[in-house]
Nucleic acid binder design. Structure first.
Lengths: 206, 206
DNA sequence: GTCTATAGGCAGATAGAC
DNA sequence: GTCTATCTGCCTATAGAC
C-alpha cells in the first residue's frame, strides 16, 4: 500500500505526488517544503508550481489520491468472498504495510496538523475518514447480521473505535520504532471487535 | 489539566511556557513560531530567546513540564483509596479535560511530528510515554491481582492499548470537533479492559 | 514544461544599548 | 531582563526567457 515511487516514465505530476506523499507521511505537511520535493525528481521549485500552483493544491491532491487509492483497496476487500473478520484483518493489514514502510497514515498525520491546514485540505481529510468509517460500519453491520462478529454498541461505534486504535497505535509504534507493538495492539482490538474474547484469570494471582 | 494561563504575577518563563503549550497543543511544534508567543505576553522575540535560547530548548521545556504535571496527577490518582477501574477512569478523565479545552495531548501531537523534532525533544517525549505506560501497567497489574480487572494479555499490553486508543481518539475527535466521540470510544475501551464486557446480540438481527 | 532569477515574507537567532 | 535593530537563511510564489 505505501506507494512505490515512479521513475522517469511516469507523469511529472504523479512523481511529485509520490515524493511529497512520502515526506508528508514521515514529516507532516508543515515538515516538508517544495524545495525538498523538486530536486528528488530533477526539477526546480518553479516547475513544481507549474503542476501545483500552491502548496495547498499539492496537499489537497495528496489526500485526494490517497483516499482514492484506499477506496480501491476497500473495494477489493469487499469483493473478496471472505467473512467479516477476514475483511477487518485485511483492512488492518493496509495500515500495517504503511507502517512497515516507516510511514504514518497520511491522514492521521494531517489530522494532527488539522488546525494549520489550508481549508481545502481539511475538507478532503474529512472525506477520507467519513468514507473509511462508512465502509467499516457496513462491514461491522454485515458481520453482526450474519453472526460472524459479536460486539457491543453500534457498527458506527465499532468503526470509530477501530479507526482511533489504528491511528493511535501507528503514532506510538512509529515513535518507538517498534512495529510489533502495532501488531500486538491491533490483534487485541480485533479480538474484541470480532467477539473472540475470553475473560480468563491468569494462573499466578494472589 | 489544560493549564490556565498565568497573569503578570508569574515568572516570564512560565508565562512563555503557558502560551507556547497552548499553541503547541493546537498547532504542533512546527505550527507555531516564537513571533506567535512573545506578543501574547507583551515581550519581544529577543526577550523570549533570553529565557529559551533556541526553540529546541523551548520544546524540551514544554515536554518536561507537561510530563511533571502529568506525573503529579498520577501520584494523586494512585494515592486515592479507589480501585483499579476508578483509577483508569480518572486517568482517562485527564485526557478528556485536555480535549475539552480544544487541545490535543501535547505529546501525542509531538509524536506525529517526531521525525522533525530536535533530538532533546524526542528524548523527553519518550520519557513521557515510558512513565505513563509504566504507571498504567502497574495499575493494570494491581487490578489483575486483586480481581478488580479482567483482561487478556499482559498489563503492559493493556497499557499500550489504552495509550493508543487515547491518542487516536483525541486525534479524531479534534478533527471532527466532536468530543462525545472521544467519550464513547473510551467508554468502550475501558469496558473491555476492566472486564465489564457482555457479548450480547442486539435485538433486531436477520 | 522547464528553466533562471528574484521577489517578499517570515523563520530562528544575535549584538549591543538600556 | 528587556529593548531596537538587524542578520541570515529558508519559505512559497511569480515573471519572463527558452
Amino acid at each position: 500500500m505505501p506507494r512505490t515511487e515512479q521513475g522517469p516514465g511516469a507523469t511529472t505530476a504523479s512523481r511529485i505526488l509520490d515524493v511529497a506523499e512520502r515526506l508528508a507521511q514521515t514529516r507532516g505537511f508543515n515538515g516538508f517544503s517544495c524545495a525538498d520535493v523538486a530536486p528528488e525528481i530533477g526539477i526546480t521549485t518553479a516547475s513544481l508550481h507549474y503542476h501545483f500552483p500552491s502548496k495547498a493544491d499539492l496537499g489537497r491532491a495528496l489526500v485526494e489520491r490517497y483516499t482514492e487509492s484506499f477506496q480501491a483497496s476497500l473495494r477489493d476487500i469487499a469483493a473478496a468472498p471472505t467473512d467479516a473478520p477476514a475483511k477487518l484483518r485485511a483492512y488492518v493489514q493496509i495500515y500495517q504495510q504503511v507502517l512497515g514502510a516507516d510511514r504514518m497514515c497520511l491522514c492521521g498525520m494531517f489530522a494532527a496538523e488539522y488546525a494549520t491546514l489550508p481549508e481545502p485540505v481539511q475538507a478532503e481529510l474529512l472525506r477520507f475518514f467519513d468514507e473509511n468509517e462508512r465502509w467499516l460500519a457496513a462491514v461491522f453491520d454485515a458481520g453482526l447480521r450474519d453472526g460472524s462478529l459479536r460486539f457491543n454498541g453500534s457498527p458506527q461505534d465499532a468503526a470509530h473505535l477501530l479507526t482511533s486504535a489504528l491511528e493511535g497505535a501507528m503514532l506510538l509504534a512509529r515513535t518507538y520504532g517498534d512495529n510489533a507493538r502495532f501488531r500486538a495492539t491491533l490483534d487485541r482490538v480485533l479480538a474484541t471487535l470480532t467477539g473472540a474474547w475470553q475473560p480468563e484469570q491468569p494462573s499466578g494471582t494472589a
